[in-house]
Design a protein around this nucleic acid. Sequence first.
DNA 1: CGAGCAATTGAAATGGGTCAAGACGTGTGG
DNA 2: CCACACGTCTTGACCCATTTCAATTGCTCG
Lengths: 262, 262
Amino acid sequence: MYHSGASGYTSPMESPAAPTPKGPGNSCVNCGVRSATVCAALGDPQLEEVEAHKVGDHYFPAGSDLFLQGTQSEYLYTIKEGWVMLYTLLQDGRRQINEFCLTGAFIGCQSDMMGPSSYSAQALTGVTVCALPREGIDAVFQRVPEMAVRFACIATKSMESAFATLATVGRGTARERIAHLLADLEARSQVVQTESSAGPLALPITQEHIGDALGLTSVHVSRTLKQLREDDIVSLRGHALHILDRPALMDVAGITPHQTQT
Amino acid sequence: MYHSGASGYTSPMESPAAPTPKGPGNSCVNCGVRSATVCAALGDPQLEEVEAHKVGDHYFPAGSDLFLQGTQSEYLYTIKEGWVMLYTLLQDGRRQINEFCLTGAFIGCQSDMMGPSSYSAQALTGVTVCALPREGIDAVFQRVPEMAVRFACIATKSMESAFATLATVGRGTARERIAHLLADLEARSQVVQTESSAGPLALPITQEHIGDALGLTSVHVSRTLKQLREDDIVSLRGHALHILDRPALMDVAGITPHQTQT
DNA sequence: CGAGCAATTGAAATGGGTCAAGACGTGTGG
DNA sequence: CCACACGTCTTGACCCATTTCAATTGCTCG
Protein backbone atom coordinates (compact mmCIF):
# COMPACT_ATOMS: atom_id res chain seq x y z
CA MET A 1 0.00 0.00 0.00
CA TYR A 2 2.61 2.49 1.06
CA HIS A 3 5.17 3.70 -1.46
CA SER A 4 7.40 6.60 -0.62
CA GLY A 5 9.13 7.58 -3.79
CA ALA A 6 11.74 9.85 -2.34
CA SER A 7 12.58 8.37 1.01
CA GLY A 8 11.96 4.79 -0.16
CA TYR A 9 12.95 2.68 2.78
CA THR A 10 11.07 -0.31 1.44
CA SER A 11 13.88 -1.54 -0.70
CA PRO A 12 17.48 -1.54 0.51
CA MET A 13 18.91 -0.75 -2.91
CA GLU A 14 19.92 2.84 -3.38
CA SER A 15 22.80 4.67 -4.93
CA PRO A 16 25.97 3.85 -3.02
CA ALA A 17 26.76 7.12 -1.35
CA ALA A 18 28.91 9.51 -3.32
CA PRO A 19 29.69 12.27 -0.81
CA THR A 20 28.21 15.53 -1.96
CA PRO A 21 31.04 18.01 -1.59
CA LYS A 22 30.42 21.17 0.33
CA GLY A 23 30.03 24.25 -1.79
CA PRO A 24 27.92 27.28 -2.53
CA GLY A 25 24.87 25.24 -3.43
CA ASN A 26 25.24 23.24 -0.25
CA SER A 27 26.35 25.85 2.22
CA CYS A 28 25.55 25.91 5.92
CA VAL A 29 23.98 29.33 5.46
CA ASN A 30 21.25 27.82 3.30
CA CYS A 31 20.90 24.68 5.40
CA GLY A 32 17.18 24.05 5.68
CA VAL A 33 17.36 22.08 8.90
CA ARG A 34 19.83 24.25 10.73
CA SER A 35 17.38 25.39 13.37
CA ALA A 36 16.96 21.80 14.52
CA THR A 37 20.64 20.98 14.68
CA VAL A 38 23.73 21.56 16.73
CA CYS A 39 24.36 24.60 14.56
CA ALA A 40 21.13 26.32 15.50
CA ALA A 41 22.51 29.16 17.58
CA LEU A 42 25.46 30.04 15.41
CA GLY A 43 26.02 33.38 13.75
CA ASP A 44 27.60 33.76 10.32
CA PRO A 45 31.23 33.90 11.45
CA GLN A 46 30.81 30.81 13.62
CA LEU A 47 29.05 29.05 10.80
CA GLU A 48 32.08 29.59 8.65
CA GLU A 49 34.27 27.85 11.18
CA VAL A 50 31.98 24.84 11.08
CA GLU A 51 31.73 24.94 7.32
CA ALA A 52 35.49 24.86 7.07
CA HIS A 53 35.59 21.72 9.15
CA LYS A 54 32.79 19.73 7.56
CA VAL A 55 33.37 17.46 4.60
CA GLY A 56 29.92 17.70 2.99
CA ASP A 57 26.93 15.39 2.88
CA HIS A 58 26.93 11.62 2.95
CA TYR A 59 24.14 9.36 1.85
CA PHE A 60 23.33 6.02 3.45
CA PRO A 61 20.83 3.64 1.87
CA ALA A 62 18.12 2.12 4.03
CA GLY A 63 19.44 -0.81 6.02
CA SER A 64 23.07 0.28 5.96
CA ASP A 65 25.01 1.06 9.10
CA LEU A 66 26.43 4.54 9.72
CA PHE A 67 28.80 3.01 12.23
CA LEU A 68 29.11 -0.17 14.29
CA GLN A 69 29.49 -0.69 17.99
CA GLY A 70 33.03 -1.47 19.01
CA THR A 71 34.44 0.75 16.30
CA GLN A 72 35.10 4.45 16.20
CA SER A 73 33.39 6.24 13.36
CA GLU A 74 35.48 8.79 11.54
CA TYR A 75 32.66 11.31 11.51
CA LEU A 76 29.97 12.86 13.61
CA TYR A 77 26.71 13.13 11.72
CA THR A 78 23.80 15.51 11.71
CA ILE A 79 20.73 14.01 10.08
CA LYS A 80 19.45 16.23 7.29
CA GLU A 81 16.80 13.81 6.15
CA GLY A 82 15.70 10.31 7.01
CA TRP A 83 15.39 8.03 10.00
CA VAL A 84 18.19 6.35 11.92
CA MET A 85 18.07 3.95 14.83
CA LEU A 86 20.70 3.58 17.52
CA TYR A 87 20.93 0.01 18.73
CA THR A 88 23.03 -2.40 20.72
CA LEU A 89 23.57 -6.03 19.86
CA LEU A 90 23.87 -8.29 22.88
CA GLN A 91 26.05 -11.34 23.04
CA ASP A 92 23.08 -13.68 22.82
CA GLY A 93 22.20 -12.06 19.51
CA ARG A 94 19.27 -10.04 20.75
CA ARG A 95 18.96 -6.41 19.81
CA GLN A 96 18.08 -3.45 21.97
CA ILE A 97 17.04 -0.36 20.07
CA ASN A 98 18.05 2.63 22.15
CA GLU A 99 16.59 5.47 20.18
CA PHE A 100 14.97 6.45 16.92
CA CYS A 101 16.64 9.55 15.50
CA LEU A 102 15.00 12.00 13.12
CA THR A 103 16.03 15.05 11.21
CA GLY A 104 18.31 17.33 13.21
CA ALA A 105 19.71 14.59 15.45
CA PHE A 106 23.42 14.74 16.16
CA ILE A 107 24.86 11.25 16.26
CA GLY A 108 28.17 9.66 16.90
CA CYS A 109 28.89 11.43 20.16
CA GLN A 110 30.48 9.29 22.84
CA SER A 111 31.50 10.00 26.37
CA ASP A 112 35.00 8.97 25.48
CA MET A 113 35.21 11.09 22.36
CA MET A 114 38.09 9.14 20.90
CA GLY A 115 37.10 5.65 21.98
CA PRO A 116 34.89 3.03 20.33
CA SER A 117 31.14 3.43 20.28
CA SER A 118 29.03 1.32 22.59
CA TYR A 119 26.22 1.14 20.07
CA SER A 120 25.59 1.00 16.34
CA ALA A 121 23.58 3.31 14.09
CA GLN A 122 21.56 2.02 11.17
CA ALA A 123 19.61 3.84 8.49
CA LEU A 124 15.91 2.98 8.52
CA THR A 125 15.25 5.00 5.37
CA GLY A 126 17.63 6.43 2.88
CA VAL A 127 19.47 8.98 4.99
CA THR A 128 21.31 12.17 4.13
CA VAL A 129 23.70 13.38 6.77
CA CYS A 130 26.10 16.26 7.19
CA ALA A 131 29.46 14.83 8.17
CA LEU A 132 31.94 16.46 10.54
CA PRO A 133 35.28 14.72 10.99
CA ARG A 134 35.74 13.63 14.58
CA GLU A 135 39.39 14.52 14.26
CA GLY A 136 39.78 18.13 15.26
CA ILE A 137 36.22 18.58 16.41
CA ASP A 138 37.42 19.63 19.84
CA ALA A 139 39.28 22.51 18.25
CA VAL A 140 36.06 23.60 16.57
CA PHE A 141 34.31 23.50 19.91
CA GLN A 142 37.11 25.65 21.31
CA ARG A 143 36.70 28.27 18.64
CA VAL A 144 32.90 28.09 18.61
CA PRO A 145 31.87 27.75 22.22
CA GLU A 146 28.20 28.32 21.29
CA MET A 147 28.41 25.02 19.52
CA ALA A 148 29.90 23.29 22.53
CA VAL A 149 27.06 24.63 24.62
CA ARG A 150 24.45 23.52 22.12
CA PHE A 151 26.15 20.15 21.96
CA ALA A 152 25.81 19.90 25.70
CA CYS A 153 22.10 20.68 25.46
CA ILE A 154 21.57 18.07 22.79
CA ALA A 155 23.46 15.47 24.78
CA THR A 156 21.35 16.31 27.79
CA LYS A 157 18.17 15.97 25.78
CA SER A 158 19.29 12.51 24.68
CA MET A 159 19.87 11.65 28.29
CA GLU A 160 16.41 12.83 29.28
CA SER A 161 14.87 10.93 26.43
CA ALA A 162 16.72 7.80 27.51
CA PHE A 163 15.39 8.31 31.04
CA ALA A 164 11.86 8.62 29.70
CA THR A 165 12.17 5.41 27.73
CA LEU A 166 13.59 3.69 30.75
CA ALA A 167 10.59 4.74 32.79
CA THR A 168 8.11 3.31 30.28
CA VAL A 169 9.98 0.09 29.76
CA GLY A 170 10.64 -0.38 33.43
CA ARG A 171 7.20 0.43 34.72
CA GLY A 172 4.65 0.30 31.92
CA THR A 173 2.55 -2.46 30.40
CA ALA A 174 2.94 -3.36 26.74
CA ARG A 175 -0.06 -1.17 25.96
CA GLU A 176 1.47 1.82 27.70
CA ARG A 177 4.89 1.35 26.19
CA ILE A 178 3.57 1.15 22.67
CA ALA A 179 1.22 4.09 23.10
CA HIS A 180 4.10 6.10 24.50
CA LEU A 181 6.41 5.27 21.63
CA LEU A 182 3.85 6.00 18.94
CA ALA A 183 2.85 9.29 20.54
CA ASP A 184 6.48 10.26 20.85
CA LEU A 185 7.37 9.40 17.26
CA GLU A 186 4.32 11.21 15.99
CA ALA A 187 5.12 14.31 18.00
CA ARG A 188 8.70 14.37 16.87
CA SER A 189 7.85 13.90 13.20
CA GLN A 190 5.38 16.74 13.36
CA VAL A 191 8.09 19.13 14.44
CA VAL A 192 10.12 18.27 11.41
CA GLN A 193 7.57 17.65 8.68
CA THR A 194 5.62 20.83 8.14
CA GLU A 195 3.31 19.07 5.74
CA SER A 196 0.43 16.67 6.38
CA SER A 197 -0.55 17.54 9.92
CA ALA A 198 -3.66 15.37 9.81
CA GLY A 199 -2.96 12.51 7.42
CA PRO A 200 -1.36 9.22 8.32
CA LEU A 201 2.29 9.30 9.23
CA ALA A 202 4.60 6.83 7.51
CA LEU A 203 6.74 5.00 10.05
CA PRO A 204 9.70 3.21 8.48
CA ILE A 205 9.76 0.51 11.15
CA THR A 206 8.44 -2.99 11.61
CA GLN A 207 6.71 -4.40 14.63
CA GLU A 208 9.93 -6.16 15.42
CA HIS A 209 11.64 -2.77 15.68
CA ILE A 210 8.96 -1.67 18.10
CA GLY A 211 9.47 -4.79 20.14
CA ASP A 212 13.23 -4.38 20.20
CA ALA A 213 12.86 -0.80 21.33
CA LEU A 214 10.43 -1.59 24.11
CA GLY A 215 11.59 -4.95 25.40
CA LEU A 216 8.67 -6.86 23.90
CA THR A 217 8.20 -9.71 21.47
CA SER A 218 7.03 -8.83 17.99
CA VAL A 219 4.22 -11.29 18.58
CA HIS A 220 3.03 -9.39 21.56
CA VAL A 221 3.42 -6.08 19.76
CA SER A 222 1.09 -7.40 17.12
CA ARG A 223 -1.51 -8.44 19.68
CA THR A 224 -1.31 -5.15 21.51
CA LEU A 225 -1.58 -3.08 18.35
CA LYS A 226 -4.68 -5.04 17.44
CA GLN A 227 -6.16 -4.19 20.79
CA LEU A 228 -5.36 -0.50 20.42
CA ARG A 229 -6.90 -0.59 16.98
CA GLU A 230 -10.07 -2.25 18.25
CA ASP A 231 -10.28 0.36 20.96
CA ASP A 232 -10.16 3.03 18.25
CA ILE A 233 -7.10 4.68 19.74
CA VAL A 234 -4.41 4.22 17.09
CA SER A 235 -4.14 2.19 13.97
CA LEU A 236 -0.82 1.04 12.57
CA ARG A 237 -1.31 -0.95 9.38
CA GLY A 238 1.54 -1.50 7.03
CA HIS A 239 3.63 1.53 7.79
CA ALA A 240 0.81 4.02 8.14
CA LEU A 241 0.13 5.41 11.57
CA HIS A 242 -3.34 6.86 12.18
CA ILE A 243 -4.09 8.48 15.46
CA LEU A 244 -7.78 7.96 16.00
CA ASP A 245 -8.22 9.32 19.48
CA ARG A 246 -5.41 11.54 20.57
CA PRO A 247 -6.60 12.24 24.11
CA ALA A 248 -7.08 8.53 24.72
CA LEU A 249 -3.62 7.85 23.33
CA MET A 250 -2.03 10.40 25.61
CA ASP A 251 -3.95 8.93 28.47
CA VAL A 252 -2.73 5.40 27.79
CA ALA A 253 0.81 6.60 27.13
CA GLY A 254 0.21 8.06 30.54
CA ILE A 255 3.67 7.50 31.87
CA THR A 256 4.21 11.23 32.02
CA PRO A 257 6.01 12.60 35.01
CA HIS A 258 3.98 13.49 38.01
CA GLN A 259 3.72 17.25 38.30
CA THR A 260 5.12 18.62 41.52
CA GLN A 261 3.01 21.54 42.63
CA THR A 262 4.86 24.70 43.52
CA MET B 1 25.05 -4.66 61.75
CA TYR B 2 26.19 -1.82 59.61
CA HIS B 3 26.92 1.56 61.14
CA SER B 4 28.63 4.21 59.10
CA GLY B 5 29.54 6.97 61.46
CA ALA B 6 30.58 9.55 58.95
CA SER B 7 28.30 9.06 56.00
CA GLY B 8 25.38 7.92 58.16
CA TYR B 9 22.56 7.46 55.70
CA THR B 10 20.64 5.33 58.13
CA SER B 11 19.04 8.25 59.86
CA PRO B 12 17.64 11.21 57.98
CA MET B 13 18.59 13.70 60.67
CA GLU B 14 21.69 15.66 59.94
CA SER B 15 22.81 19.22 60.28
CA PRO B 16 20.68 21.36 58.01
CA ALA B 17 23.17 22.47 55.43
CA ALA B 18 25.09 25.59 56.23
CA PRO B 19 26.81 26.39 52.91
CA THR B 20 30.55 26.23 53.31
CA PRO B 21 31.80 29.41 51.65
CA LYS B 22 34.49 29.11 49.06
CA GLY B 23 37.90 30.20 50.15
CA PRO B 24 41.55 29.27 50.34
CA GLY B 25 40.90 26.17 52.39
CA ASN B 26 38.25 25.05 49.94
CA SER B 27 39.73 26.05 46.62
CA CYS B 28 39.21 24.28 43.32
CA VAL B 29 42.96 23.88 43.00
CA ASN B 30 43.00 21.62 46.04
CA CYS B 31 39.78 19.86 45.13
CA GLY B 32 40.36 16.20 45.85
CA VAL B 33 37.80 14.91 43.43
CA ARG B 34 38.54 17.22 40.54
CA SER B 35 39.83 14.50 38.24
CA ALA B 36 36.44 12.81 38.37
CA THR B 37 34.40 15.93 37.74
CA VAL B 38 33.39 18.31 35.04
CA CYS B 39 36.44 20.36 35.96
CA ALA B 40 38.88 17.57 35.17
CA ALA B 41 40.39 18.98 32.00
CA LEU B 42 40.71 22.55 33.12
CA GLY B 43 43.94 24.45 33.45
CA ASP B 44 44.58 26.98 36.20
CA PRO B 45 43.20 30.04 34.38
CA GLN B 46 39.98 28.19 33.48
CA LEU B 47 39.71 26.92 37.01
CA GLU B 48 39.73 30.49 38.21
CA GLU B 49 36.77 31.29 36.00
CA VAL B 50 34.87 28.44 37.54
CA GLU B 51 35.97 29.31 41.03
CA ALA B 52 34.72 32.84 40.55
CA HIS B 53 31.32 31.50 39.61
CA LYS B 54 30.80 28.86 42.26
CA VAL B 55 29.22 29.63 45.58
CA GLY B 56 30.90 26.97 47.70
CA ASP B 57 29.80 23.65 49.09
CA HIS B 58 26.33 22.61 50.12
CA TYR B 59 25.36 19.76 52.37
CA PHE B 60 22.21 17.68 51.98
CA PRO B 61 21.17 15.18 54.65
CA ALA B 62 20.21 11.67 53.60
CA GLY B 63 16.67 11.53 52.29
CA SER B 64 16.49 15.18 51.29
CA ASP B 65 15.93 16.28 47.72
CA LEU B 66 18.53 18.34 45.90
CA PHE B 67 15.81 19.40 43.51
CA LEU B 68 12.38 18.23 42.38
CA GLN B 69 11.04 17.43 38.97
CA GLY B 70 8.87 20.19 37.59
CA THR B 71 10.97 22.85 39.28
CA GLN B 72 14.15 24.53 38.26
CA SER B 73 16.98 24.21 40.71
CA GLU B 74 19.00 27.30 41.31
CA TYR B 75 22.26 25.40 41.15
CA LEU B 76 24.12 22.75 39.26
CA TYR B 77 25.89 20.35 41.57
CA THR B 78 29.03 18.28 41.48
CA ILE B 79 29.04 15.52 44.06
CA LYS B 80 32.10 15.74 46.28
CA GLU B 81 30.98 12.99 48.59
CA GLY B 82 27.96 10.78 49.01
CA TRP B 83 25.34 9.02 46.93
CA VAL B 84 22.49 10.62 45.02
CA MET B 85 19.74 9.03 42.97
CA LEU B 86 18.00 10.60 40.01
CA TYR B 87 14.40 9.50 39.78
CA THR B 88 11.12 10.23 38.10
CA LEU B 89 7.75 10.01 39.81
CA LEU B 90 4.93 8.86 37.57
CA GLN B 91 1.40 10.06 37.88
CA ASP B 92 0.23 6.78 39.38
CA GLY B 93 2.75 7.25 42.15
CA ARG B 94 5.29 4.72 40.94
CA ARG B 95 8.91 5.66 40.86
CA GLN B 96 11.56 4.99 38.26
CA ILE B 97 15.11 5.46 39.43
CA ASN B 98 17.12 6.61 36.44
CA GLU B 99 20.58 6.56 37.85
CA PHE B 100 22.64 6.23 40.99
CA CYS B 101 25.22 9.00 41.11
CA LEU B 102 28.49 8.79 43.00
CA THR B 103 31.34 11.14 43.68
CA GLY B 104 32.24 13.26 40.69
CA ALA B 105 28.79 13.19 39.10
CA PHE B 106 27.51 16.46 37.71
CA ILE B 107 23.81 16.84 38.25
CA GLY B 108 21.14 19.31 37.42
CA CYS B 109 21.76 19.48 33.70
CA GLN B 110 18.70 19.96 31.56
CA SER B 111 18.28 20.28 27.85
CA ASP B 112 16.29 23.42 28.34
CA MET B 113 18.84 25.00 30.63
CA MET B 114 16.38 27.46 32.06
CA GLY B 115 13.31 25.24 32.19
CA PRO B 116 12.05 22.81 34.81
CA SER B 117 13.76 19.49 35.41
CA SER B 118 12.09 16.32 34.21
CA TYR B 119 13.41 14.36 37.16
CA SER B 120 14.24 14.74 40.82
CA ALA B 121 17.47 14.16 42.70
CA GLN B 122 17.53 12.78 46.22
CA ALA B 123 20.39 12.25 48.64
CA LEU B 124 20.81 8.59 49.63
CA THR B 125 23.53 9.42 52.13
CA GLY B 126 24.59 12.71 53.57
CA VAL B 127 25.91 14.47 50.50
CA THR B 128 28.41 17.25 50.02
CA VAL B 129 28.19 19.04 46.71
CA CYS B 130 29.95 21.89 45.00
CA ALA B 131 27.31 24.33 43.82
CA LEU B 132 27.43 26.41 40.66
CA PRO B 133 24.60 28.90 40.13
CA ARG B 134 22.62 28.06 37.03
CA GLU B 135 22.29 31.77 36.39
CA GLY B 136 25.20 32.80 34.27
CA ILE B 137 26.49 29.28 33.73
CA ASP B 138 26.16 29.69 29.98
CA ALA B 139 28.57 32.62 30.16
CA VAL B 140 31.04 30.39 31.98
CA PHE B 141 30.61 27.76 29.28
CA GLN B 142 31.23 30.45 26.69
CA ARG B 143 34.46 31.46 28.32
CA VAL B 144 35.52 27.93 29.16
CA PRO B 145 34.41 25.79 26.23
CA GLU B 146 36.44 22.85 27.55
CA MET B 147 33.92 22.73 30.33
CA ALA B 148 30.95 22.73 27.97
CA VAL B 149 32.49 19.87 26.06
CA ARG B 150 33.23 17.96 29.21
CA PHE B 151 29.69 18.66 30.29
CA ALA B 152 28.41 17.21 27.03
CA CYS B 153 30.60 14.14 27.51
CA ILE B 154 29.22 13.63 30.97
CA ALA B 155 25.64 13.89 29.71
CA THR B 156 26.55 11.46 26.95
CA LYS B 157 27.92 9.05 29.51
CA SER B 158 24.63 9.25 31.39
CA MET B 159 22.87 8.51 28.14
CA GLU B 160 25.09 5.52 27.47
CA SER B 161 24.55 4.31 30.98
CA ALA B 162 20.79 4.70 30.52
CA PHE B 163 21.06 2.70 27.30
CA ALA B 164 22.88 -0.05 29.14
CA THR B 165 20.24 -0.12 31.84
CA LEU B 166 17.56 -0.11 29.18
CA ALA B 167 19.10 -3.17 27.60
CA THR B 168 19.09 -5.09 30.87
CA VAL B 169 15.63 -3.98 31.88
CA GLY B 170 14.20 -4.60 28.44
CA ARG B 171 15.80 -7.94 27.81
CA GLY B 172 17.14 -9.46 30.98
CA THR B 173 15.64 -11.61 33.72
CA ALA B 174 15.45 -10.36 37.29
CA ARG B 175 18.59 -12.33 38.07
CA GLU B 176 20.50 -10.70 35.25
CA ARG B 177 19.29 -7.20 36.01
CA ILE B 178 20.24 -7.40 39.65
CA ALA B 179 23.63 -8.94 38.92
CA HIS B 180 24.27 -6.20 36.41
CA LEU B 181 23.34 -3.42 38.80
CA LEU B 182 25.38 -4.78 41.68
CA ALA B 183 28.42 -5.34 39.48
CA ASP B 184 28.08 -1.83 38.11
CA LEU B 185 27.72 -0.18 41.50
CA GLU B 186 30.63 -2.12 42.85
CA ALA B 187 32.84 -1.19 39.93
CA ARG B 188 31.96 2.47 40.17
CA SER B 189 32.53 2.64 43.92
CA GLN B 190 35.93 1.06 43.50
CA VAL B 191 37.02 3.87 41.22
CA VAL B 192 36.17 6.41 43.85
CA GLN B 193 36.98 4.69 47.10
CA THR B 194 40.65 3.87 47.10
CA GLU B 195 40.29 2.00 50.36
CA SER B 196 38.94 -1.47 51.11
CA SER B 197 39.28 -3.22 47.81
CA ALA B 198 38.29 -6.57 49.21
CA GLY B 199 35.92 -5.93 52.09
CA PRO B 200 32.18 -5.59 51.85
CA LEU B 201 30.89 -2.47 50.15
CA ALA B 202 28.22 -0.45 51.93
CA LEU B 203 25.32 0.26 49.59
CA PRO B 204 23.04 2.98 50.93
CA ILE B 205 19.99 1.57 49.17
CA THR B 206 17.06 -0.67 50.03
CA GLN B 207 15.69 -3.53 47.99
CA GLU B 208 12.90 -1.23 46.98
CA HIS B 209 15.44 1.12 45.43
CA ILE B 210 16.84 -1.78 43.47
CA GLY B 211 13.39 -2.71 42.29
CA ASP B 212 12.57 0.84 41.28
CA ALA B 213 15.78 1.09 39.31
CA LEU B 214 15.27 -2.20 37.50
CA GLY B 215 11.53 -2.35 36.97
CA LEU B 216 10.98 -5.06 39.55
CA THR B 217 8.96 -5.51 42.71
CA SER B 218 10.84 -5.32 45.98
CA VAL B 219 9.34 -8.69 46.79
CA HIS B 220 10.89 -10.22 43.75
CA VAL B 221 14.18 -8.50 44.41
CA SER B 222 14.22 -10.15 47.80
CA ARG B 223 13.58 -13.58 46.32
CA THR B 224 16.19 -13.13 43.62
CA LEU B 225 18.83 -11.89 46.04
CA LYS B 226 18.18 -14.93 48.17
CA GLN B 227 18.78 -17.13 45.15
CA LEU B 228 22.02 -15.34 44.26
CA ARG B 229 23.14 -15.74 47.83
CA GLU B 230 22.35 -19.45 47.86
CA ASP B 231 24.29 -19.83 44.65
CA ASP B 232 27.27 -18.21 46.38
CA ILE B 233 27.52 -15.44 43.81
CA VAL B 234 26.77 -12.27 45.79
CA SER B 235 25.41 -11.61 49.21
CA LEU B 236 23.58 -8.42 50.09
CA ARG B 237 22.52 -8.43 53.72
CA GLY B 238 21.59 -5.26 55.41
CA HIS B 239 23.58 -2.80 53.40
CA ALA B 240 26.71 -4.86 53.01
CA LEU B 241 27.53 -6.16 49.57
CA HIS B 242 29.83 -9.16 49.39
CA ILE B 243 30.92 -10.41 46.03
CA LEU B 244 31.52 -14.10 46.52
CA ASP B 245 32.20 -15.20 42.98
CA ARG B 246 33.15 -12.38 40.70
CA PRO B 247 33.45 -14.36 37.46
CA ALA B 248 30.05 -15.93 38.05
CA LEU B 249 28.60 -12.50 38.75
CA MET B 250 29.98 -11.07 35.55
CA ASP B 251 28.67 -14.07 33.72
CA VAL B 252 25.16 -13.65 35.06
CA ALA B 253 25.22 -9.89 34.51
CA GLY B 254 26.04 -11.03 31.03
CA ILE B 255 24.08 -8.44 29.08
CA THR B 256 27.26 -6.92 27.73
CA PRO B 257 27.40 -5.68 24.16
CA HIS B 258 28.37 -8.11 21.47
CA GLN B 259 31.86 -7.38 20.27
CA THR B 260 32.07 -6.56 16.59
CA GLN B 261 35.29 -7.96 15.21
CA THR B 262 37.39 -5.58 13.14
C1' DC C 1 8.15 -1.76 75.03
C1' DG C 2 5.95 -0.32 70.89
C1' DA C 3 6.12 2.07 66.33
C1' DG C 4 7.74 1.73 61.80
C1' DC C 5 10.23 0.43 58.06
C1' DA C 6 12.76 -3.26 55.52
C1' DA C 7 13.09 -7.89 54.40
C1' DT C 8 10.93 -12.63 53.99
C1' DT C 9 7.93 -16.06 52.70
C1' DG C 10 3.75 -18.31 50.83
C1' DA C 11 -0.15 -18.84 47.63
C1' DA C 12 -2.70 -17.38 43.79
C1' DA C 13 -3.25 -14.54 39.55
C1' DT C 14 -1.49 -12.74 35.15
C1' DG C 15 1.10 -10.36 31.56
C1' DG C 16 3.99 -11.50 28.30
C1' DG C 17 7.01 -15.19 26.19
C1' DT C 18 7.52 -19.29 23.39
C1' DC C 19 6.32 -22.41 19.83
C1' DA C 20 4.03 -23.22 15.75
C1' DA C 21 1.02 -22.69 11.88
C1' DG C 22 -1.07 -19.59 8.58
C1' DA C 23 -2.16 -15.41 5.95
C1' DC C 24 -0.85 -11.58 3.35
C1' DG C 25 2.03 -8.71 0.12
C1' DT C 26 5.62 -7.94 -2.77
C1' DG C 27 9.45 -8.71 -5.62
C1' DT C 28 11.83 -12.35 -8.54
C1' DG C 29 12.53 -15.65 -11.98
C1' DG C 30 10.71 -18.81 -15.29
C1' DC D 1 1.49 -13.77 -16.33
C1' DC D 2 1.94 -17.14 -12.98
C1' DA D 3 4.46 -19.54 -9.30
C1' DC D 4 7.42 -19.28 -5.71
C1' DA D 5 10.11 -17.37 -1.99
C1' DC D 6 10.76 -14.31 1.61
C1' DG D 7 9.65 -11.12 5.08
C1' DT D 8 6.08 -9.36 7.97
C1' DC D 9 2.07 -9.76 10.44
C1' DT D 10 -1.65 -12.77 12.73
C1' DT D 11 -3.56 -15.99 15.64
C1' DG D 12 -3.97 -19.96 18.85
C1' DA D 13 -2.42 -22.80 22.77
C1' DC D 14 0.46 -23.40 26.48
C1' DC D 15 3.98 -22.02 29.87
C1' DC D 16 6.50 -19.44 33.19
C1' DA D 17 8.65 -15.34 35.30
C1' DT D 18 7.04 -11.77 37.86
C1' DT D 19 3.25 -9.46 40.25
C1' DT D 20 -0.09 -9.10 43.70
C1' DC D 21 -1.97 -9.82 48.14
C1' DA D 22 -1.14 -10.91 52.72
C1' DA D 23 0.99 -12.30 56.85
C1' DT D 24 5.31 -12.65 59.64
C1' DT D 25 9.87 -11.54 61.23
C1' DG D 26 13.52 -8.60 62.26
C1' DC D 27 15.90 -4.38 63.29
C1' DT D 28 16.38 0.36 64.84
C1' DC D 29 15.02 4.00 67.28
C1' DG D 30 12.26 6.89 70.37
